[in-house]
Write a protein that binds this DNA or RNA. Sequence first.
DNA 1: ATGGTCGCTAAGCGA
Length: 272
Amino acid sequence: MSERLKIVSWNINSVRLRLPIVEKLLLDYAPDVLCLQETKCPDGSFPTAAFNKLGYRHVAMHGQKGYHGVALISRVPLGDVECKEFCEMGDTRHIAATVELGEVPVRLHNFYVPAGGDVPDPEVNDKFAHKLKFLDEMEAWFGGFSGESIVVGDLNIAPHENDVWSHKQLLRVVSHTPLECERLASVQAAGKYVDVVRQQIPESEKLYSWWSYRAKDWSKADKGRRLDHIWMTAGTAAQCRHVEVLRDARGWEKPSDHAPVVSVLEAADFSG
DNA sequence: ATGGTCGCTAAGCGA
């Protein structure tokens, strides 16, 4: 049982290539649970031993060769690990486990939602159709949830105006189209989730978690999008004391194009 | 307006 939990979500874009900066994150920020997406690593090749050495004894992964892949790297026990398949594609885009906060079990879901390709029209772009179907399946599944839970991951949608560098210029760009943003809102509503990042950092403030590799100087141009999210059910959200996007990590050696998103929970009724 | 860069895996796809 933990009275305090630091949960970090990070699209790592190859866990093996970026093992040094994953280790740096664990050492410098000491999350209790690190949720990774785009590990691009079959389960048999996952660098579990390196994480065990740093005190992360509980590692659960769901990966495949070359694409996608999600993982949970934890100092606290991970109960009832589950990997759900969406859209009957065989993609490794979800892993869940139960952690304890105070004495309350909290279900932690880690997602990697399809990016959706370039053309924001499901009639001509199968990848965009897949993204929308994936969101529909999330919504239907979340509708049956009970108890406290957390959703983290690369949801590949920046829902609000200040979640992108230019709302107007991205209205027809996949990741910020009204269709996706509305669909994401329905998914969130189905699970009665609070967007704890925007609960703590007002929507009036620009906030990003992803910057393209293609910019000459990503930080100077600062054309980012907030694609990575942390949602919590109300009881858990009420215990969220801090959130943060680790923008600096985007500038680390051989960086991912995503920055880690941090949340800190403290059990309010912890008495000893 | 276009192309710009990565990672995987060995030319092209996905992001």
